[in-house]
């Protein structure tokens, strides 16, 4: 098969949960669905390592200030910078923007000791919303997820059942969950199962 570069491939590609169809399970007690969740398809993700100059460059290029302390994230529009470790952050950005941001950051940072790594396809982000979101997560996560303890703007890396996850509290009833793409089908299945008693809607 002779090929020419004119036949453009589908650059959107396949997301981690591309094979999983939408599904719904009603709240057995009637009333509101406890958990509405779905994949945040193609969300750009950059792993940021470094100290000197990194925060300044990220602020200048993405508009996000670095979280002031551990276990927090800082947002600017659709972009979020999540604290992962003393010298490690995760930047979430609009789909397709990651390459451009990575290039800009690489060219702006003068220190030799930094690393910007594209992990957009390495990690899968899910949006979770609903009155039962914390109860569902508590079934698999040992963190204290009480709304007074894990407030909006807080994040943490921990375990959800048998998967490593990063949790971001967006609001009292809304989270972003990040896991490895190969664990995403497991996490999706686990969430639907755990939410059975509250009802759920999974949006593909």
């Amino acid at each position: 098969m002779a090929n020419s570069s004119s036949s453009r491939p589908d650059f959107s590609g396949q997301t981690a949960l591309a094979g999983i169809a939408s599904s719904t399970s009603a709240n057995p007690d009637g009333g509101t669905i406890g958990l509405v969740f779905g994949e945040m398809a193609h969300l750009g993700k950059l792993n940021l390592r470094g100290q000197n100059g990194l925060a300044k460059a990220v602020k200048a290029i993405t508009g996000c200030t670095f979280p002031p302390k551990a276990n927090r994230f800082q947002s600017a529009g659709e972009r979020h910078v999540i604290w992962l470790a003393p010298d490690e952050y995760l930047l979430l950005c609009e789909a397709g923007k990651e390459q451009e941001l990575q290039d800009s950051l690489n060219s702006m940072i003068t220190s030799s000791h930094f690393a910007i790594t594209d992990v957009s396809d390495s990690l899968c982000a899910l949006s979770l919303r609903g009155p039962s979101v914390r109860a569902v997560l508590a079934k698999g996560c040992g963190l204290d997820l009480h709304p007074d303890q894990f407030t909006a703007g807080q994040s943490a890396q921990s375990l959800l059942a048998l998967s490593a996850v990063t949790l971001m509290a967006v609001a009292d009833d809304a989270f972003i969950l990040i896991c490895r793409t190969s664990f995403a089908p497991y996490v999706q299945r686990w969430l639907a199962d755990a939410a059975l008693e509250y009802g759920y809607q999974y949006k593909a």
């Binding site: 390592r49 030799s112 594209d118 992990v119 390495s122």
Partner: peptide
């Protein structure tokens, strides 16, 4: 040592 490591197993 000034070295950063990032897993990219699933990126590729």
């Amino acid at each position: 040592l000034e070295v950063y490591l990032t897993s990219v197993t699933e990126q590729w």
